[in-house]
Amino acid sequence: MLALEVEGLVKTFLVKRKPEGFKASVRSLLRPEWTEKTAVAGIRLKAEAGETLAFLGPNGAGKSTTIKMLTGILHPSSGHARVLGMVPWKERAALAFRIGAVFGQKSQLWYHLPPADTFELLSRMYELGRADYLRRRDELVERFELGPYMQTPVRKLSLGERMRCEIAAAFLHRPELLFLDEPTIGLDVIVKRRIRELIAERNREEGTTVFLTSHDPSDIEQLCRRAVVIHHGTVIFDAPVERLKREVLTCKTVRLKLRDGARLLEKLPGGVRAAEAGPSAWRLSVDTTTASIEDVLAAFVGHCAIEDMTIEDPPMEDVIRAVYEGKAGGRPAEEGTV
């Protein structure tokens, strides 16, 4: 069964153009100039119920605009979409009962009240039966480990604690499809991992379809089975995440800071090259297809006096560039998906 079906979805905005300077401001006041900006340029996409789909792209690619059209927030300029069989912008309220949405930058928790109060409000909003609500709330509190935070005003929670509450709240009414727009933005590695585990668990146990946008390749690797990459408002890649990992996400960056006077290995292990080298700080590129990250770290930790070390995924821009350069062979939008 299809969870969503999108055909030729387009969204354009009129943007006021104003050159810099006071004179230009006055001119703009009298004779404003508008240009049409295309945020989404004919997206075509299908997703099966129960899928975990990563919707990727650089800033300004049209990810959030697409999600906003699929949740009924924005009306499209043209095109068609059906989410759970409904047209989002025409059947917004009915659809809202069956979907959930988490925006990393927009909270649905009440800032001055504890999450328990927002959960109460959401139970009324989604018209949950009392017994069902209490059972569901307790289940989510246990699985998301929210017990210590449920009675604390949201303003006093850390970002990680708040996001866990936020995502648990989005699952309260058992949405069939959950839209997550950068849910891990600004979170530390441990919290990110826990949030991914919890979302994956809901997908496994309740069959919730997950539609995720993120700039963090780890979100995609660990949570999603399919990746759709968009750029300039159109789909440029659509394939299983395994292929994206195999063909694009093959490189990790290791930053090393050595103690004073310490020296790096005489010879770098196979699959490792120095991208930047300084007297005590190094940026190394590790090709994970030829060297395991564990072996590389073991080699450095065993032989160098390390003061600090970080491991990073390639930035999304590099992923997009690799897709453009044809390193990954996903299907283009015109051929359809699934």
């Binding site: 949740t71 309220a93 809202a96 009962f97 909003m125």
Partner: peptide
Amino acid sequence: ELDVFLTQPKPL
């Protein structure tokens, strides 16, 4: 700031 309200199933 209407985004969150628009994703909720109550009269906007």
